[in-house]
């Protein structure tokens, strides 16, 4: 009896959820279709694909020439992290560089584009709640990003397997999947930001530029600023004691961590490189006598957990602001 009643409750809840999200599936389906068939996406996907394959080729050939010289642990992971002299970027750095562009491209005209085409009022006069549109657009973007990231990741993994012939361990596979999930979250942050820009700016070109400006600031200038700020707070010279130097370094790091780009790069370099044990400044005496070794997957995950949580939070905050401003915005052009 009790079970039946419980089931009734769940069923009622489900119906309510289903009703509240009426039209969501339709919006998602249409938006995914639009993205995948659009020229803009095709160009970007091609760019990402070519660069990633290039980085794989360089990584594979570097690994092959270095066989026997280094200790070759985690060959599978090195496919993603190794860069060569002819191409100074690895798969990792390409994704962290081009990923935000993909996210921004998918979202910068989400809402103001509808406004421009005068479709917004027509779509919203259909029997769906207003949030179905913005939720649908965001979800569709996340789905497309997942397709791209996982597609590329597994493509590179598969080709790498053929080129090197070294199969991955379970730990390596777990690290790869964690890395890909992290990348999806990171790129989704930029998608959410782009959607926010598309709400704040009526012109699509302005919103695209604003998105790119924020990206440039977060990715490149914030670290410079962080260094300057840290030097201001804890000035360091040749005679400074270790306390001061550590305080300086820590401040710089903490300010840099505002940027999702920094958080992401910290997280992915640690998860893809089992030898990384700590992300803060390490004193020589702390490292002295440490046994050389690598972390297990769960330990690496523990290490990057704060970064992961922050990335998710930043993405959600960005989307929440976009959501709220969309719900409050006037529909009329």
């Amino acid at each position: 009896m009790e079970r039946a009643a419980k089931w009734q409750n769940t069923k009622a809840d489900l119906t309510r959820i289903f009703e509240a999200n009426k039209g969501l599936a339709t919006v998602v389906r249409k938006e995914v279709g639009d993205h995948l068939s659009g020229k803009r996406f095709a160009i970007l996907a091609l760019l990402v694909l070519v660069t990633c394959l290039g980085s794989l080729y360089v990584a594979a050939s570097t690994i092959r020439t270095n066989v026997g010289q280094d200790e070759l642990e985690f060959v599978f992971l090195r496919l993603f992290t190794t860069s060569g002299s002819s191409m100074p970027f690895s798969f990792l750095s390409f994704i962290s560089f081009l990923g935000p562009l993909v996210g921004l491209t998918l979202g910068f005209d989400a809402i103001n584009g509808e406004r421009d085409r005068r479709t917004l009022s027509r779509v919203l006069s259909q029997p769906i709640f207003r949030d179905a549109l913005i939720n649908g657009k965001f979800l569709a973007g996340v789905i497309v990003i997942s397709i791209v990231v996982f597609g590329l990741g597994f493509l590179v993994a598969g080709l790498g397997l053929i080129m090197t012939g070294v199969p991955p361990t379970l730990g390596e596979l777990a690290r790869l999947i964690t890395y890909l999930v992290l990348s999806v979250i990171y790129i989704s942050f930029w998608l959410a930001l782009a959607i926010l820009c598309s709400l704040l700016f009526r012109q699509t070109s302005t919103s695209a530029l604003a998105g790119i400006a924020i990206w440039l600031f977060m990715a490149f200038f914030l670290t410079l600023l962080a260094g300057m700020a840290a030097d201001g707070i804890y000035p360091v010279n040749d005679n400074s004691d270790s306390q001061q130097i550590i305080a300086n370094a820590k401040t710089e790091q903490m300010i840099s961590r505002i940027s999702p780009a920094y958080l992401y790069s910290e997280a992915v370099t640690s998860i893809m490189n089992p030898a990384v044990r700590s992300m803060g400044p390490v004193l020589l005496e702390q490292a002295y006598g440490a046994i050389k070794g690598t972390l297990t997957f769960s330990q690496s995950l523990l290490l990057i957990w704060p970064q992961v949580v922050c990335l998710i939070a930043e993405m959600l905050i960005c989307f929440a602001i976009a959501y709220i401003s969309f719900m409050r915005q006037e529909i009329r052009a």
Partner: peptide, 13 residues
Amino acid sequence: VGYLPDNVGFYDE
């Protein structure tokens, strides 16, 4: 209610 906005817009593509 069916609504025909002024200067109605569609997805051009």
